[in-house]
């Protein structure tokens, strides 16, 4: 089996896991869940870093730099804002 097919296999399984894992989420947590997954796709920061590392002219360097800023703001902001929201959810003392 080629590597591409294996990767496709992982992709298909991940689709089902994504569906399954949040299927019972109460609407109470819709906003934090959206915000938390928003942080997870901030993994694009790694993509930006990989591309910027290879950059060998100033155009790619400039755009790669922007991609790293965007990705970094996405990942840090996403997790921080979710944490700030969730620390307010308390049970009655």
């Amino acid at each position: 089996m080629s590597e591409q097919i294996l990767i496709l296999f992982i992709f298909v399984l991940a689709v089902f896991v994504g569906f399954e894992v949040i299927s019972k989420v109460p609407s109470l947590l819709h906003t934090p869940l959206m915000s938390g997954t928003n942080g997870i796709h901030g993994i694009i920061l790694l993509g930006g870093m990989l591309v910027l590392a290879k950059a060998d002219n100033s155009l790619v360097q400039a755009l790669g730099f922007v991609a790293v800023i965007f990705g970094s703001a996405n990942v840090f902001g996403g997790f921080m804002v979710t944490d700030r929201m969730l620390q307010m959810f308390k049970k009655k003392k």
């Binding site: 992982i10 994504g18 894992v21 989420v25 993994i43 694009i44």
Partner: peptide, 25 residues
């Protein structure tokens, strides 16, 4: 999609999880 392009498994898995759970949401 980017994960496929630059062969990064963690990006593929993370992106797909967000994509499918977000669609369901």
């Amino acid at each position: 999609g980017d994960g496929f392009v630059i062969h990064n498994l963690s990006m593929i898995v993370a992106g797909t999880l967000v994509g499918s759970s977000g669609t369901l949401l």
